[in-house]
Structures are given as C-alpha cells and as structure tokens.
Design a protein around this nucleic acid. Structure first.
Lengths: 242, 242
DNA sequence: GCCGACAAGATTGTTGACAGTCTTTCAGGC
DNA sequence: GCCTGAAAGACTGTCAACAATCTTGTCGGC
C-alpha cells in the first residue's frame, strides 16, 4: 500500500528523567493527571491566574515536565468542571465568573448547605457543636471588631468542613466543593462588606444553637436564611464586588 | 548527536475519510469529544452497557473511528463525572451503583428539585401549570390504573423538564442532570413498586396545585416530601430493586 | 499617514509508533 | 490429574513527529 511512513531509530533513547528531584520551585512535582488538575484548580481558585487568562499547553507541559497529551487530558477534566473554556485552535482560558452565575451558585449553595446542616445535626452527637458555640462567641466577636477577617474565615471554614463531614453525604460534598472552587474569591469579598461579618456572626450563632439543641429542621431553615442574607448583601453591593 | 529518530515519508497519505457517511448502524457519526461523551453517557444511563463492564480504548476508538487519544480524553471526562472508574493498566469499567450512594443521590435530588419548584413557581406565569393540573388529573389516573408506566414516566419527565426550565438556574440544572444520569434506571424500578405510582400521583397533584396558586414555599415543601416518600419506598423495597 | 495583503512564527490539533504491564495459554513436573 | 511456571498475546500508558490553524510583524499601495 502507498503512503507508508518509515521510522528508523538509531539508538534507544535515554529515559527523560522521571522523578525530577531537582524540580525548580514553582514547578511542583505533580505528575499524575489528578495532581495537575488539583494544582491548576487551586491556582484558579486563588486567582493566581486571572479569569480570562490564557493557559498554554506547551507552557504547562514544560512547567510540569509532562508531555502535552497529558495537559490536554487535564484540560478536558477542567472544562467538564466549568473552570476553563476551550476555543478550537486558540487554546484554553480561565472561565470568567458572570454576576448572574454567582447568584445561581449561591442559590444552590443555600439549599445544599442547609441540607448538610440538617443531616449533620441528626448524625453528630450534640456535644460536637460545643466547640463552635464557644468559637462563635467571644473569639469571633474579637476578630470582627479587630477587622481580622483572615482568622474569621479560618473559623468559618472549619465550621463548614465539620458540617460537611458530619452530613455523611459525599454526593453533596462533591457538589459543594465544585461550588466553592468557583466562589472562593467572592466569599472573601463579601465578608468585608459593611456589616456583613457582624450579621453573619449573629446568624451563625442561631444556627449553632439550633444544632446544639438537636433541632435539625430549624437549623436548616436558619442556615438557608443566612446564605439568603449573604446573597442579598452581595446583590446590594454587587458593583463593588465584581 | 546520537539517539536521533529519522522519519521518511514516501507520500502524503490520503486523509482518512472524516465524515463517515457510510457509518454502520450502531456506530454513530459522533466525532467530537462532547459527542462521544454524550453517546457513552446515554449508553451507561440506559444500561446498554452493564455496570462493571469493561470499556476498551481500542474497541471504542475503532467503533467511533477516532484515534485512541480522543477516547482517552473522553474517559477523563467520564471519570471526573463519576460514571466510570479507571484502574491503572487495566482500563475503565462502568461504575457500580452502591445502594448507599443511591440514597445520597436522592437526598440531594430532593432539596435541588424542591428549590427548582420554588423558583419555577416564582418565575413562571401561573397559567403555565394548567397543563399539568390537567395531565395529573384523569389522564395520569388512567395510566396508573392501566399499568401504563411508560406513559406515566413520559408525563413525569415532561413536568420535570418544565420545572427545571422555569427555575432559570443552569447550575442546578447541571447538577440534577448529573444525578439523573446515574439514577435513571432506579427511577423506573421505583414507580412499579406496589402503590408508589398512585401515591406519587397524589403528591404531585398537591405540588402542582400549590404552584398554580403561586404558593412557592408550600410547593417546595411538598416536592421535598414527595421525594422523601419515594426514598422511603425505595428503602423499604431495596432488596427488590438492587 | 493609514489600511490591507502577505509572509514568518508560534501554538494547537492529530496521528502513529514504542514501551510497560496484565492476562491467557501451554508445557512441564509433582 | 492438578498445580506451577514461563512465554505469547493483548491491552493500556507514554511519547514525539507531522499537519493545520491562528497570530504577529512587515511591506506595498492608496
């Protein structure tokens, strides 16, 4: 048959050093697909790469020390998660976060976290929440008054993780994770809005109290109201956030 | 320099016919990644391929007439969606649906569909639901009494799509879609459980009535209760379903 | 001086080939 | 006759070269 391609190899090439012990800083030793996906997900979530920025296949392949085909697979996963968009022959860009999209994410987040609060209240022993009854008291009050939003968020995150952990529902956990990875940035901008941290703290005290009392339904209702308020605040100050 | 690879091409080979007009039946003319993902998603959803069955890269590449690399990308997407599992050096298999997993999916589905019902009630003009007030009356009653579950499910699906359409929340729509693609099979097995169709019909009449009356909160509550009941039925007859 | 067409460079899309690992099969020994 | 071990086969994992497309920079014309 015609059109044959003949390939001659003169020598079995040396293997291109796998475990890059001498990896330069900034280029993590992430080689598997899951690792690279995680690395890029973190970068996008922390806005180390800005929305709309271009992601080059060659560039990333060189940085991680893997063939381009692997980066390509990673892009497929990231695209199916909605974190990037691929334009034919033009590469991949970080998805821009539309304002309307953020509201939709918050709407879903409200019902999912509400559900998790309810399930967590049912699944965990009541004493579990004593820790947070305490933290959301004087300590958090101090953070808010001092304007120490970083510490505020740390406690907030800790509570969030406890909720999800005790809800015992990996499906919901996965979905919430995919919401967080997109709204991470927005959350940090909402808490610094005037009065929001103070209000949110009060709302959370109510939520935690209901959980400590074992009132699952009420806790769910309060948590949903909490996120509804956050969304309203965002809507009111949207021009300052995005 | 040593280790060189020399490639000789004797003739620019003819392009390997792209638009396969003469594609044999069963091998759809799906070429793009999204198309193949959709095709496989449908097969898995309809259980044309059984859970636990192996998916061969070569086999699929040959069937769709695309290079293996593309199948590989498709697998990446399917894995990130949880539809398949990839075992190193052993290929990909269709994910098995654990019973516990089904309950978790139903738990999430309840709150998400509840939310959609609420939003749809707020967004759509009340007359929108007249159609379903009618359908869930005598027609559906006839289907249930005649044991015509196919027609029953068709109407059910139609209502579901209307809900999601009017909820105007693509994020929730996407998540619900990823739930349906996994529970499609189970749904068909639940409606044929003794008394379930009749009960579900009554519950839906209440939901639709609330929507027609513009009572969004009540509609949400009723819808969640409806899916809670479905889940309870499933739990009671679980040994007959899975 | 500005606009459009053309050429050079760079990047993505596609393909086939090579290498490693697991499974299967067959022969030999207990 | 059954079990163990090795070789063959088949498949996945990995990779680099080739082809097509878009972008950028430059030259000529109006």
């Amino acid at each position: 048959m015609s059109g044959r391609v003949v390939t001659l190899k003169t020598k079995p090439r040396a293997r291109p050093r796998r475990t890059g012990g001498g990896g330069r800083s900034g280029a993590p030793a992430a080689r598997t697909i899951a690792d690279i996906v995680e690395a890029l997900r973190t970068r996008i979530g922390r806005q180390d790469v800005a929305p709309g920025a271009k992601l080059g296949e060659q560039e990333l392949a060189a940085e991680f020390g893997v063939p381009r085909a692997r980066i390509r697979e990673v892009f497929g996963v990231l695209e199916s998660r909605g974190l990037i968009e691929r334009i034919p022959n033009r590469g991949a860009v970080v998805s821009r976060l539309e304002l309307e999209h953020v509201f939709q994410l918050y709407e879903v987040r409200a019902v999912l976290e509400g559900m998790c609060v309810r399930l967590a209240t049912q699944n965990a022993p009541p004493e579990t929440w004593d820790e947070f009854v305490h933290l959301f008291g004087a300590p958090m009050d101090g953070f808010v008054k001092a304007g120490d939003f970083d510490s505020f968020i740390v406690v907030y995150e800790r509570f969030r993780r406890a909720i999800i952990e005790w809800a015992r529902n990996p499906v919901a956990a996965r979905m919430l994770d995919s919401i967080y990875e997109k709204t991470n940035v927005v959350i940090r901008r909402i808490v610094i809005l005037p009065g929001r941290a103070q209000s949110g703290l009060g709302e959370h005290r109510a939520v935690v109290a209901a959980m400590r009392a074992g009132n699952a339904e009420e806790a769910e209702r309060l948590k949903r109201m909490n996120l509804q308020n956050a969304q309203d605040t965002l809507r009111r100050f949207q021009k300052y956030v995005l």
